[in-house]
């Protein structure tokens, strides 16, 4: 046992197990990994919501025809409008079925002609569509809730972009943290590094030892962060399920990717920081 410990120390000539041993770095990386997991889940959920709303909005604009309008020609005129992918006349039976919960089986009632519009885009052109419909079929009434859905969808897309931005920011802060920890390690082992350098150790050898140790600690912290994030995301997913369906499903793949991603960021950052410092030696 003592011999194994002695050999392990020998394979760590910079003494980094002692110089970089505190819980600070893994703890901070764990906090960053937790934030990253939340941001990632937020981005995925926002993307799922936006996609669902976009799908719903595409079939959500209804046009009520005036009493004298013929359904067939009106549908053809509406289908020709820019931004309209399809104009589908609603059959009388389907309309009666939609009204049955409120009016009962009122077969004698005169029902207006209704046309469902599927839009090819939910972009800026949607705003102008009700006016174009009025111009094409004077007296038509437009139920334009698709525009509101489009706005909600755009909001969800913005939230998604914001969440990815937060994730990138968390990555950048983690990299800065690793750089500071690496500089602290260099300061603690300054004399030893110079001795190894003077004995012929290459920049690559010294940087790799630092990077390996720092990547191990960051990976460890990220595992802890992912483990803490899992029950939290499960809880949030359960709370949001009635509103969002399975949009907040557990991102197992993302959680599993956190430790290797954290280790990779730490390894690259430590390599760069140590090599930059070593450039100051001849």
């Amino acid at each position: 046992m003592a011999e194994r410990l002695r050999r392990a120390r020998g394979r760590d000539p910079l003494g980094l197990r002692r110089a970089l041993s505190g819980p600070l770095l893994p703890g901070l990386v764990a906090a960053m990994a937790l934030l990253a997991a939340l941001a990632m889940a937020g981005a995925v959920a926002a993307a799922a919501m936006a996609a669902r709303w976009e799908g719903g909005a595409a079939a959500a604009m209804m046009v009520q025809l005036p009493a004298n309008a013929q359904t067939g020609p009106a549908a053809a005129a509406l289908a020709a409008l820019p931004g309209v992918a399809e104009a589908i006349p609603l059959e009388r039976e389907r309309l009666a079925a939609l009204l049955r919960p409120w009016l009962g089986d009122a077969a004698g009632l005169p029902l207006p002609g209704m046309i469902e519009l599927r839009l090819s885009t939910l972009g800026a052109g949607v705003e102008a569509l009700p006016e174009a419909i009025q111009a094409a079929i004077p007296g038509a009434r437009v139920e334009a809730h698709g525009i509101w859905v489009a706005r909600l969808s755009a909001l969800a897309r913005s939230l998604e972009a914001l969440a990815w931005l937060v994730l990138a920011l968390v990555g950048a802060v983690a990299a800065a943290m690793v750089a500071v920890a690496t500089r602290a390690g260099i300061a603690a082992r300054h004399a030893t590094i110079v001795i190894l350098h003077d004995m012929g150790a290459t920049d690559s050898t010294i940087a790799s030892r630092f990077a390996g140790r720092i990547a191990f600690l960051a990976g460890l912290g990220a595992v802890l962060g992912a483990v803490l994030a899992a029950p939290l995301l499960y809880l949030l997913g359960g709370l949001a399920a009635p509103l969002l369906g399975n949009a907040l499903a557990m991102p197992w793949g993302g959680l599993a990717a956190l430790p290797p991603a954290a280790a990779l960021i730490a390894w690259l950052t430590a390599q760069a920081a140590v090599r930059l410092w070593l450039r100051g030696l001849p």
Partner: peptide
């Protein structure tokens, strides 16, 4: 001297060989 205080005497002496990549 510049011996490394966290290594024992044997590992201090072995250091140049480790840097040169010699086998354990």
């Amino acid at each position: 001297f510049r011996l490394l205080p966290h290594l024992d005497v044997l590992e201090n002496v072995a250091l140049p060989l480790r840097i040169a990549g010699r086998g354990e």
